[in-house]
């Protein structure tokens, strides 16, 4: 464990908690893409199948449980509890264009052709594009609530910090995982436009508005 990875995990956990609280407190999921949350639930499910078979540490196991539980709770709130506030008309990104290519790629490019490893690889590839429906929705509605932009910022920063974690691990542990690194780079690049708007607007107290 290193500081970048720890801060990355904290940032990721914060994003998940911010979203949960935003929906629960405001009793509304307006502006939130249910499709992205569904994709995140798939990402965690396919990545943590070894939750009960491969114990790494208490920290690792407890974080995995929190991630899986909170992602399902978020999907449940969007599609069930507060579905009346779900803005389906603006959440129209075709997720099959994300799931099918990443699934095919996980069969072609992986570390080992075994079910668990292919599912882990699929979850890594899917995570790198899972935020697209949410970013697409923000661009369609032309704006995002400030709390939603904080959620997106924390979520984007988590994988950016992981990039530094991989530099650290390459330098000091001679460890590197090219699949995770390339997918992490793609994931971070997708946030660049949002990072620019967040830093130039939201941090100056303005509302996040995208040129529609």
């Amino acid at each position: 464990m290193n500081i970048f990875r720890f801060l990355g995990d904290i940032s990721h956990l914060s994003a998940i908690i911010i979203l949960l609280l935003k929906i629960w407190k405001s009793r509304s999921c307006a502006g939130i893409s249910g499709k992205s949350q569904l994709l995140f639930a798939i990402v965690f499910t396919t990545r943590y199948l070894d939750l009960f078979t491969n114990f790494i540490s208490f920290y690792n196991t407890s974080m995995k449980v929190v991630y899986v539980a909170s992602s399902y709770a978020t999907v449940w709130m969007i599609y069930s509890k507060f579905k009346a506030t779900y803005d389906g008309n603006h959440d129209t990104f075709r997720v099959e264009f994300l799931i099918v290519p990443t699934a095919i790629l996980s069969f072609l490019v992986n570390h080992d052709f075994t079910p668990l490893e292919i599912l882990w690889t699929f979850s890594i590839y899917l995570e790198s594009v899972a935020i697209l429906p949410q970013l697409f929705m923000v661009s369609k509605t032309g704006e995002a609530e400030t709390i939603t932009s904080h959620y997106l910022f924390a979520l984007g920063i988590y994988r950016t910090l992981y990039l530094f974690n991989w530099i650290w691990r390459y330098q000091f542990e001679e460890f590197f995982d090219l699949i995770a690194i390339v997918a992490g780079l793609v994931q971070t690049v997708l946030y660049c436009d949002f990072f620019y708007l967040y830093i130039t607007k939201v941090l100056k107290g303005k509302k996040l508005s995208l040129p529609a």
Partner: peptide, 10 residues
């Protein structure tokens, strides 16, 4: 190089 199955990151 990462070995298959030993993914210790979240």
């Amino acid at each position: 190089e990462a070995l298959p199955g030993d993914h210790d990151e979240l």
